[in-house]
C-alpha cells in the first residue's frame, strides 16, 4: 500500500465518521463541530488531489465564515429536540427522495469513471504549477460574466439582509462620533460660583 493511499483512507474514514455523527448527534452544537471536522478531512482529500486552492478556500469560506455563523445561530436559538423529532415520519418520503437523487448523482459520476465513460484520472502537474493562478486566470477571462453575475447576486443578498434588519424604524440609542468629537468641556460641565454660606 502506498503512503498516499493510506492517507486517503485515513482522511476518508474520519470524513465518513464525522458526516455520520453530524446526522446522528442530538446536540446541534456537537453536530456543527463534527461538520467542521468533516470539512477539514474533505479539504485534506482535495489537497491529495492537488486542488490546493479549493482545499484552502473550503477552510477559509466554510470553516472560517459559514460554520461560524451556523454556530451563532445554533447557540442563540433555543432548539427543542422533541419538537424537532415530531415531524420525522411525515418528512421521511421527501428526505428519501433527496437521498436517492444524491445517490444517483454520485453513482453517475463515480460509475462513469469506473466504466471509463468519463475521464477519471487526475492529471499530474509539475511541482511549480500554481493552482491559484490557473483558477484566477480562468475566472477572470473565460468565466468573467458568470463570475460577475455571481457577485451581483451576492450584492443583492447583502442589500436584502441590510434592508431586513432596518425593516422597522426603532428608536435606537445610536451615537454619532462626529458630533461627539466636537463636544467641549463647557457643554457637559457647568461650573457655578456660589457665595459661601454664613454661619449664624
Amino acid at each position: 500500500m502506498e503512503f498516499r493511499t493510506f492517507v486517503f483512507y485515513f482522511l476518508s474514514a474520519i470524513l465518513v465518521f464525522a458526516a455520520l455523527r453530524v446526522v446522528t448527534l442530538r446536540n446541534p452544537v456537537h453536530a456543527a463541530l463534527h461538520l467542521v471536522l468533516a470539512f477539514f478531512s474533505a479539504s485534506g482529500i482535495w489537497i491529495l488531489l492537488q486542488a490546493e486552492f479549493l482545499a484552502i478556500a473550503l477552510i477559509l469560506v466554510y470553516v472560517g465564515a459559514v460554520m461560524v455563523l451556523f454556530l451563532f445561530v445554533v447557540m442563540l436559538l433555543d432548539i427543542n429536540l422533541d419538537r424537532l423529532r415530531e415531524g420525522f415520519w411525515s418528512y421521511l418520503p421527501l428526505g428519501a427522495i433527496v437521498a436517492l437523487l444524491i445517490v444517483a448523482e454520485m453513482g453517475l459520476v463515480l460509475g462513469g469513471m469506473y466504466w471509463g465513460i468519463l475521464e477519471g484520472d487526475v492529471p499530474q502537474v509539475e511541482a511549480g504549477f500554481s493552482n491559484v493562478q490557473a483558477v484566477g486566470r480562468l475566472l477572470f477571462t473565460e468565466y468573467v460574466y458568470p463570475f460577475e453575475l455571481a457577485s451581483v447576486v451576492l450584492l443583492v443578498g447583502i442589500v436584502a439582509a441590510t434592508a431586513l434588519t432596518l425593516r422597522d424604524k426603532r428608536k435606537s440609542k445610536s451615537l454619532s462620533p462626529s458630533e461627539q468629537v466636537f463636544v467641549k468641556a463647557k457643554d457637559r460641565v457647568r461650573v457655578l460660583q456660589m457665595p459661601a454660606e454664613k454661619n449664624d
Binding site: F53, I59, L60, G64, V68, S130
Partner: peptide, 15 residues
C-alpha cells in the same frame, strides 16, 4: 504556492 491564503484560512479557525 498559496502560503498567504493558507495563513488566512488557518487563522480564521481561531475564532
Amino acid at each position: 504556492n498559496a502560503s498567504l491564503l493558507f495563513i488566512m484560512a488557518v487563522t480564521s479557525v481561531s475564532v
